[in-house]
């Protein structure tokens, strides 16, 4: 099975004619993702190098291609409207890669997407991949391997590093999702864990958290009550100074809240092992997978 993305994904690319959009469209096609078209306002009717139709609006694209998913590579200024346009056009999975969207805009975007019944991943995220089935986003496909471990992360390259460590140990993944590094994201750990819990092809889940906010603490509470499958955690930012944004807009310890210590404590309290190093994490998951 896997979750969110698979061979039934019919993907459109918003911002398909831009630099990032066109580059990653090729990468996704090469990985086997069913990309069925793209959207760039004003360029409707054109065809891309990869022979994909370009539409003026998501609505047009959905009508012509029967797309069910979209990935957004448009600049931060236009990305909120792009997400809302996709939700209003009836797209069920919206993956927003764009970094730097004003947080205030995400308040409206988040609730509009909710009302429309769509699922948003991101913004400021690498996307989602179900190895050997399809990928939506910017992650390097070759480091992944099909298997039975789900991965949910707030990070980008750190996720690749960890997935690579799993793959090196022979531990494959059902689906890997980067939820994004912004304060307000469409889906958090708690939104995705239930999907892995229900997925027949996932046996365990790896959570990669970081400083800032209280998503990890709330997730720990959720795991304690609702998860039967084993969960492994890793939390970065123990050495981060207070009041400084560590790259991601959402990664900041302020007023003593959002510290790595607090998150590690919360996970430990519900019996979720928190690894101290990436090797320790990968070894623990590999050990469990063999058992």
């Amino acid at each position: 099975m896997s979750i969110l993305v698979d061979e039934n994904t019919r993907l459109i690319v918003q911002g398909i004619t831009g630099r990032d959009g066109s580059f990653h469209t090729k990468q996704m096609l090469a990985y086997g993702t069913k990309v069925v078209g793209g959207v760039t306002p004003g360029k409707g009717g054109q065809t891309t190098e990869d022979n994909l139709p370009v539409f003026n609006s998501v609505q047009d694209a959905v009508k012509e291609t029967d797309a069910n998913s979209t990935v957004i590579y448009v600049p931060a200024k236009f990305a909120p409207a792009a997400v809302i346009e996709a939700a209003e056009a009836g797209i069920s999975l919206i993956v927003c890669i764009t970094e730097g969207i004003p947080v205030m805009d995400m308040v409206e975007v988040y609730h509009t997407v909710q009302v429309k019944g769509a699922r948003l991943i991101g913004p400021n995220c690498p996307g989602a991949i179900s190895p050997d089935k399809a990928k939506i986003g910017i992650m390097p496909g070759q480091i992944h391997k099909p298997g039975r471990v789900g991965v949910i992360s707030r990070s980008g390259t750190l996720t690749y590093e960890i997935v690579n460590s799993l793959t090196e140990r022979g531990v494959g993944q059902s689906t890997c999702i980067g939820v994004g590094g912004d304060p307000i994201v469409g889906s958090g750990f708690r939104d995705l864990l239930p999907l892995f819990e229900k997925d027949d092809e996932t046996d365990a889940v790896v959570l990669i958290g970081e400083i800032g906010g209280d998503e990890e603490e709330r997730t720990a509470e959720y795991i304690g009550k609702h998860m039967s499958k084993p969960v492994f955690a890793y939390v970065v930012g123990q050495t981060a100074p207070e009041g400084k944004r560590m790259g991601h807009a959402g990664a900041i310890v302020s007023g003593g809240a959002g510290t790595a210590e607090s998150k590690i404590k919360a996970f430990s309290a519900v019996g979720v092992p928190v690894a101290r190093t990436i090797d320790e994490l990968a070894d623990a998951v590999a050990e469990k997978s063999k058992a």
Binding site: R154, S155, G156, L158, T239, A240, A251
Partner: peptide, 12 residues
């Protein structure tokens, strides 16, 4: 490269 990996590097 990457904020998460940079934090992980500091932690390590």
């Amino acid at each position: 490269n990457g904020a998460g990996l940079a934090m992980a590097t500091m932690d390590m």
